[in-house]
């Protein structure tokens, strides 16, 4: 699958804000299951739609000379169930921009209600020609930008609950757990390899592991840790549902051939929710970190809160 996560840009105010569309299909590579038989789009990967929309605002405003690379996200909130067949409205705004960086915000709406919010993200502006041939970027933008194209309707078909006949088969985003000797901590390896499809688009001239994939590795391991904690406490009916992240930081470019060491540790754990601190190192260097926030819920209350209640 290609790593182009925004399908159309409908409105653009130069250098300031934009609105666009992202469609979700059964062919998407990034489906996962929180509860068996209920496929949902990976909570962090979908944030790439906002990141790419914001990227186009900045790339277009700077006349295809720079491309933003995300470094810090202050707060990330996700509280919806996005599934195949949904049409998402993606919004992005640039609060301020200088020669070196930009401060941005973004949102994804499903049926008119926010499901993803990214607040206070800082990106660094990298020379575009080192990542992508500028003429290719211009061509992509030309195809994406359709001024006046109608945005998704707020009254779409309701969410579907019956999808049990199509199982989603997905391996975890980490490869091997290397240390589970301590009760509230896990360490795992995630190998980065050149065969991955997303390196075609991210980026043609320099392969860099997308930030959302780094986060997905942290999320996947944190989820495994929470599942083990729940089993230990005998709470087998509950499942962890990601509902946000704080202090998300990316410090290094991660490239094919690198081996990520992902670490997840319980920061706090109560009946209804928990916080997991995650960290990624590459060759001993600190590469990324985030504090992940999970809702602990059973299937019935998840359906009520995230699907029917919306």
């Amino acid at each position: 699958m290609r790593f182009l996560m925004i399908d159309r840009i409908c409105e653009l105010e130069k250098g300031k804000s934009a609105r666009g569309i992202k469609n979700i299909s059964w062919n998407d590579d990034f489906l996962e299951e929180i509860f068996p038989g209920m496929p949902v789009v990976s909570s962090f990967v979908i944030a790439e739609a906002v990141a790419q929309l914001l990227s186009w605002i900045i790339v277009e405003a700077k006349d295809f000379t720079v491309k933003p690379v995300i470094t810090v996200v202050d707060s990330y909130i996700c509280n919806g169930h996005i599934q195949p067949g949904d049409q998402l409205e993606v919004m992005g705004s640039v609060e301020s921009m200088s020669e070196e960086g930009a401060l941005v915000h973004g949102k994804i709406l499903l049926r008119g209600k926010p499901v993803i919010e990214i607040n206070h993200a800082v990106c660094y502006l990298y020379p575009l020609s080192e990542l992508d041939p500028p003429e290719r970027a211009r061509m992509q933008f030309k195809h994406l930008y359709v001024p006046g194209c109608p945005l998704p309707q707020t009254a779409q078909h309701p969410a579907s609950l019956m999808r049990e006949e199509v199982p989603v088969y997905k391996r975890p985003w980490f490869d091997r757990i290397t240390d589970d000797s301590q009760p509230a901590r896990l360490v795992a390896i995630k190998n980065v390899t050149a065969t991955e499809d997303y390196f075609n688009d991210h980026f043609p001239r320099k392969p860099i592991l997308p930030g959302v994939v780094i986060l997905e590795a942290q999320h996947s391991l944190a989820r495994e840790l929470v599942l083990r904690q729940l089993a230990e406490r005998g709470l087998t009916g509950s499942f962890p549902v990601l509902c946000g992240a704080e202090k998300v930081k990316f410090r290094l470019f991660i490239q094919p051939g690198d081996q990520m060491l992902v670490e997840a540790a319980v920061k706090s754990f109560s009946d209804g929710q928990c916080f997991i601190a995650t960290k990624v190192t590459v060759g001993g260097k600190n590469a990324a970190s985030a504090l992940l926030h999970f809702d602990l819920t059973d299937r019935a209350s998840y359906t009520q809160k995230y699907i029917l209640g919306r």
Binding site: P172, W173, D175, K190, T193, E196, D197, P256, G257
Partner: peptide, 29 residues
């Protein structure tokens, strides 16, 4: 899947030898 089956070269002596790395990831198709 991209058909790039080695990730990087860590040692290279022109005309003589080389050493390279292939990482195996659980996401490989």
């Amino acid at each position: 899947m991209r058909f790039y089956l080695f990730d990087k070269v860590i040692d290279f002596i022109p005309g003589t030898s080389s050493r390279g790395i292939k990482n195996v990831s659980s996401q490989e198709e």
